Amino acid sequence: MKTALPTACGLGLRAPHIETVLAERPAVAWWEVHSENYFAVSGGATPSRELTGGAAITALTQLRQDYPISLHGVGMGLGRLDPLDPAHLAQLKQLVARIEPAAVSEHLAWNHFAQRHFNDLLPVPRVEGVIEHLATRIDQVQTALQRPILIENVSAYVGFADEMLSEAQLMVELARRTGCGLLVDLNNFHVNTLNLGLDAAAELAQIPGQYVEEIHVAGFEWFDGTAVDTHGAPISAEVFALLQQAQRQWGAKPVLLERDTNLSSFADLYHEYRSLDQYMNTLQGNTSKVYA
């Protein structure tokens, strides 16, 4: 098993909502947080011996008593050419040991080159040698954590020449070689359809359900004619259509609602979460869930 997440809808937990969630303990099946927000460092670069301080990690530890937690990394840079940052990996290992999450995931992206860090999830060109390179990095992380991880597809804004396989094919081959699971982001596939003319439905059709352990849904926004994966808008009709396809193709999977920008009150976000959860219950033929 790559994940112990419930086969239900989860919600991304962001800092402005933590106090409300701690106080109200809302009916959410599971929470996902960005791993790096809970790292403890000493001197800015060296991992501390224990994750003992800070309101953020204290709150996450409290929530872990009542909810399954998924740790979702945004800073590892699995696709980078230079070695993975040992301090980053050590901190992730410490966090996993303390929280004992139901799932740990990372993006198929790169973010570092020639001692420069890029604050973005940059897509990895799918060219000769990329499978071996990424498989080695995934094995390194899984060996350090002593558990399988999930890998997520990312949005892209430019295409690359001489690519040899689709992103779906890359993900499936990496899962087959390394034993990792797949986190399929439907909004990212849709953004790539809008920007690059890819066929999101065809991409999903290439992914066997046995490898899929989690699904992400979110909204995007348009900027100067480009669809940008901001996680700052409601889920689009096209992404809902992909969610229907995924349900038909793979069966029930954990589904996460992401919202990172244009954050509303928690009450508004919780209403959006409930609507998604009811939608998934309808797709799965289960209408028995009742909210307080």
Score class of each variant (00 low, 15 high):
residue 285 G to S: 10
residue 163 E to N: 05
residue 133 H to S: 13
residue 207 I to G: 01
residue 136 T to Q: 15
residue 22 L to M: 11
residue 154 V to C: 02
residue 161 A to F: 11
residue 243 L to V: 02
residue 227 A to S: 06
residue 208 P to Y: 04
residue 118 F to M: 10
residue 244 Q to M: 14
residue 75 G to M: 09
residue 263 L to P: 00
residue 81 L to K: 14
residue 121 L to N: 03
residue 40 A to L: 14
residue 135 A to N: 09
residue 205 A to E: 14
residue 46 T to R: 13
residue 186 L to S: 02
residue 282 T to Y: 12
residue 46 T to S: 15
residue 134 L to V: 03
residue 38 Y to L: 11
residue 275 S to F: 04
residue 198 L to Q: 13
residue 224 D to Y: 15
residue 258 E to M: 07
residue 20 T to C: 12
residue 255 V to A: 09
residue 152 E to T: 08
residue 274 R to H: 07
residue 46 T to W: 13
residue 67 Y to T: 08
residue 223 F to M: 14
residue 211 Y to M: 09
residue 100 E to P: 05
residue 234 P to G: 02
residue 55 A to I: 11
residue 234 P to R: 09
residue 23 A to H: 10
residue 188 N to W: 02
residue 39 F to T: 00
residue 94 Q to E: 10
residue 53 G to Y: 06
residue 5 L to G: 00
residue 238 E to G: 06
residue 218 A to S: 07
residue 59 A to Q: 05
residue 71 L to N: 00
residue 137 R to D: 05
residue 143 T to D: 11
residue 44 G to Y: 07
residue 127 V to K: 09
residue 116 R to E: 14
residue 189 F to T: 05
residue 240 F to W: 15
residue 291 Y to A: 07
residue 3 T to E: 00
residue 229 D to C: 08
residue 145 L to M: 10
residue 178 T to W: 06
residue 134 L to F: 13
residue 101 P to W: 04
